[in-house]
């Protein structure tokens, strides 16, 4: 089987008013050789041309109702069936920061309910403040995920966090957390320099239970995380290579799968 060439991989970065991290997301895809497209939701009529959908960070529609809620409901009213099909076919759908919040509001993450059923939320940080700080993330053992396949388990990354609502709350409480851990859906946990996965604030910037920073669905093709790998990209960035590895994983996954 011949792999898709990176430049033939078309990633759709969906924007509306207030999604303001799309430029760095665009650059991230370009830097790993893929062909990204910045597409306003108003102009997104079909998902057919794309092998990947990414929802960037920001404050979509101001986040005035609840983080990600307005963007999610606009997607529901326009493209939802097509998006569910896209996911069913195994194409990757990712969200960073506000994009993660949107995927949760769409019911795609953790994705343990009926299609479209919302079973989690990203609640206000325990500090009740916007927190811009560098987070240490531990790659935890998980199912194979499109976004992390090239990052070995146990590896630690430094990635910037910048959000006011990043505490992952799951419907179903303790059992739900246990379930996503058992099903291999936890991708990243906030840690300190000693790699402790119960490290408190400010290592865990939002109070997320079990220090969860990023998750995927059970199949591993829908993924979301609060910290920003697209901001931790090239060598001159003080964060080193961390971000590149994740986007390279994604492109490799698409190349090998489709």
């Amino acid at each position: 089987m011949i792999e898709m060439r990176p430049q033939d991989i078309h990633a759709c970065i969906v924007r509306i008013e207030g999604t303001n991290n799309e430029d760095e997301m665009y650059r991230a895809f370009k830097n790993v050789g893929a062909t990204p497209h910045l597409v306003h939701l108003n102009e997104l009529k079909t998902l057919d041309p794309y092998q990947c959908i990414m929802i960037p960070g920001g404050f979509s529609a101001g986040d005035y109702v609840r983080a990600g809620a307005i963007f999610a409901s606009r997607i529901r009213s326009r493209l939802f069936d097509e998006l569910l099909d896209f996911v069913d076919h195994g194409y990757p759908v990712g969200g960073i920061c506000n994009g993660f919040q949107v995927l949760v509001e769409l019911g795609l993450l953790p994705g343990d309910g009926e299609p479209g059923e919302v079973t989690a939320c990203l609640a206000e940080n325990d500090s009740a403040r916007f927190e811009c700080r560098h987070s240490l993330l531990l790659r935890t053992p998980s199912n194979p995920c499109a976004f992390t396949s090239r990052l070995p388990e146990g590896e630690r990354l430094m990635v910037p966090s910048a959000h006011a609502e990043g505490k992952l709350l799951l419907a179903g409480g303790i059992r739900a957390y246990k379930r996503i851990e058992e099903r291999g859906q936890v991708l990243f946990k906030y840690v300190n320099y000693a790699n402790e996965t119960e490290a408190p604030y400010p290592w865990n910037p939002n109070g997320s239970p079990h220090n969860i920073a990023g998750i995927c669905n059970e199949k591993g093709n829908v993924f979301g995380m609060m910290p920003h790998p697209e901001r931790a990209f090239d060598i001159e960035n003080e964060n080193g290579y961390a971000g590149r590895t994740l986007f390279e994983s994604l492109i490799r996954y698409i190349g090998e799968t489709f």
């Binding site: 303001n20 991290n21 430029d23 760095e24 650059r27 960070g57 920001g58 403040r129 916007f130 927190e131 811009c132 700080r133 910037p160 910048a162 920003h228 697209e230 901001r231 990209f233 960035n237």
Partner: peptide, 10 residues
């Protein structure tokens, strides 16, 4: 400082 996003746009 930490209340401001000082790294957006990367």
């Amino acid at each position: 400082i930490r209340q401001y996003d000082f790294e957006v746009r990367a």
